[in-house]
Computed example of a mutant assay.
Amino acid sequence: MIQDSFGLTQLNSKRLEFSCFQEKDASEAYVAITPNLARYMAWDVPESDEQFREV
């Protein structure tokens, strides 16, 4: 377990790197949004990945 400069925890193993969502992750996450997934979101789906970065 590693803490970054913001005090957030990152877990690492040989096969997995798990960390808190960051703005740099937005582009990859945005393309994964599907209608089936979006129905569980507490907010409307952004129209672009730029808008998604603000969420």
Rank of each mutant, 00 (worst) to 15 (best):
53 R>D: 00
44 D>P: 00
1 M>T: 10
33 I>E: 01
47 E>N: 03
47 E>H: 03
17 E>F: 13
52 F>C: 00
36 N>K: 14
18 F>A: 14
33 I>V: 15
8 L>R: 15
45 V>E: 00
2 I>D: 06
45 V>W: 00
24 K>L: 05
26 A>F: 05
12 N>P: 01
30 Y>A: 04
39 R>F: 07
17 E>P: 08
44 D>L: 02
40 Y>C: 04
31 V>P: 02
41 M>Q: 05
27 S>F: 10
38 A>G: 03
46 P>L: 04
2 I>N: 13
15 R>E: 15
24 K>N: 10
34 T>A: 12
35 P>G: 03
27 S>N: 12
27 S>W: 07
37 L>E: 03
43 W>S: 04
34 T>D: 03
38 A>P: 01
22 Q>P: 00
13 S>V: 11
3 Q>V: 14
13 S>I: 12
14 K>S: 13
8 L>D: 05
39 R>V: 13
35 P>H: 09
16 L>T: 11
23 E>H: 09
33 I>R: 02
29 A>W: 11
8 L>Y: 11
47 E>I: 01
7 G>T: 01
9 T>H: 08
11 L>H: 12
55 V>H: 05
15 R>D: 15
46 P>A: 02
3 Q>L: 14
41 M>T: 06
2 I>G: 09
40 Y>D: 00
30 Y>S: 02
42 A>D: 07
42 A>G: 02
41 M>Y: 08
2 I>T: 11
6 F>V: 04
49 D>W: 00
10 Q>I: 14
37 L>T: 15
51 Q>A: 14
19 S>Y: 10
21 F>N: 06
54 E>L: 10
8 L>A: 07
25 D>S: 12
16 L>F: 14
43 W>D: 05
6 F>T: 04
22 Q>I: 09
26 A>V: 09
19 S>G: 07
18 F>Y: 12
47 E>F: 08
53 R>C: 01
43 W>Q: 06
35 P>N: 07
2 I>K: 10
31 V>R: 10
19 S>R: 13
3 Q>D: 03
15 R>I: 12
29 A>Y: 09
25 D>K: 06
42 A>T: 06
8 L>Q: 11
8 L>N: 08
55 V>T: 07
39 R>C: 11
34 T>Y: 06
37 L>F: 02
29 A>C: 15
39 R>Q: 04
46 P>Q: 02
36 N>L: 08
8 L>K: 06
41 M>R: 02
13 S>K: 15
49 D>V: 02
27 S>Y: 04
49 D>I: 01
50 E>M: 06
28 E>I: 13
14 K>Y: 13
31 V>N: 10
6 F>D: 01
31 V>Q: 09
54 E>V: 12
14 K>C: 14
33 I>F: 08
31 V>H: 05
20 C>D: 07
24 K>H: 12
7 G>E: 04
37 L>W: 03
10 Q>K: 15
26 A>T: 11
1 M>N: 09
25 D>N: 05
29 A>N: 09
44 D>N: 01
20 C>H: 08
45 V>L: 02
43 W>E: 06
48 S>F: 04
2 I>A: 12
51 Q>L: 11
12 N>H: 14
17 E>R: 14
32 A>S: 13
29 A>L: 15
52 F>Q: 00
21 F>C: 09
9 T>Y: 06
10 Q>A: 11
